[in-house]
Design a protein around this nucleic acid. Structure first.
Lengths: 147, 147
DNA sequence: CGGATTAGTGTTATGTTATAACATATTTTC
DNA sequence: GAAAATATGTTATAACATAACACTAATCCG
């Protein structure tokens, strides 16, 4: 799997260890087509008789997030693989309410607009949560919903 | 309290009932200078011997959110009073990591940018979570942090 | 009016998400 | 190879949220 390979390389370059459990959690995240919850990851790991504890999953997720390999979707209490690992980027997400698919949006336009809106108020941003829920192009076929 | 008065009026106009528990939850939300968690609201209600149950608070919060009186901050699992009740608006939030104060950002610029970034991908947005964490102007005095 | 319907509240129990505290094992550093 | 740092394993519990069902109050409409 390409994402796994890339993760291996990035960790090696950064002097970080992509240990077994971390790799297995990352695999579980990528195996899911949609954002996946920590306890669903846990279930995958323990499928077939493992005895991994919740905190082990959370610790792995923390590592993966710190190293830009996974993002947390706060509005879903769930996690997705990062589409652009390596870049240190502020991302936004487009979450389809029908199919659950989640696209990472790394838009200049978006971040410039955020900066502008925010700078006007003298606020200094450290981190952002931008999660837009709606219909992806595929699920929107034949519909006529507007915002 | 002004927010309470406004809520009364808006509910009356909409034919909705701002019952006792709903009003008390709304009060608790406004009494807090920062976003407040459901169980902290609960504690306030029960301070002095009440026996309100968690679900009663969640039910009240659901009503208040449905009627545009309260917003949920997903990244904090907490709730804030809506700064512009009555408008049906898509808001964003600026959350100070030092003092916890939270400003509601109802920016045209922001929403236009979101629309632009999103329309380019053929995505149709229903609802949004925009929560920016950082330093408010007051807490930023004397600092030189950048994004 | 007064019965039927709807909306709201109260109560108990449980589900879901996340972390604390501490012991053990492994790796790195010097 | 001892000390320090990093990672894992184990048990328990904290924090956030909802299900299910009984009961009460408000409203609708003959």
């Amino acid at each position: 799997m390409a994402a796994l390979m890339k993760a291996e390389i990035l960790c090696r370059m950064a002097g970080k260890k992509l240990t077994n459990i971390r790799r297995r959690v990352l695999e579980a995240v990528w195996d899911s087509h949609a954002p996946i919850g920590a306890y669903d990851i846990l279930a995958k790991l323990n499928d077939g008789g493992g005895r991994t504890a919740p905190i082990m999953v959370y610790r792995a997720l923390e590592f993966l997030m710190d190293n830009g390999l996974v993002h947390r979707i706060a509005s879903l209490n769930a996690f997705v693989g990062c589409a652009h690992p390596g870049d240190d980027h502020a991302a936004g997400f487009l979450i389809c309410r029908e199919c659950g698919s989640t696209a990472e949006m790394d838009s200049e336009t978006l971040n410039e607009a955020l900066d502008t809106a925010v700078a006007a108020r003298g606020f200094v941003v450290d981190s952002q949560v931008v999660e837009l829920r709606g219909l992806c192009p595929h699920c929107n076929e034949g519909h006529t919903h507007a915002r």
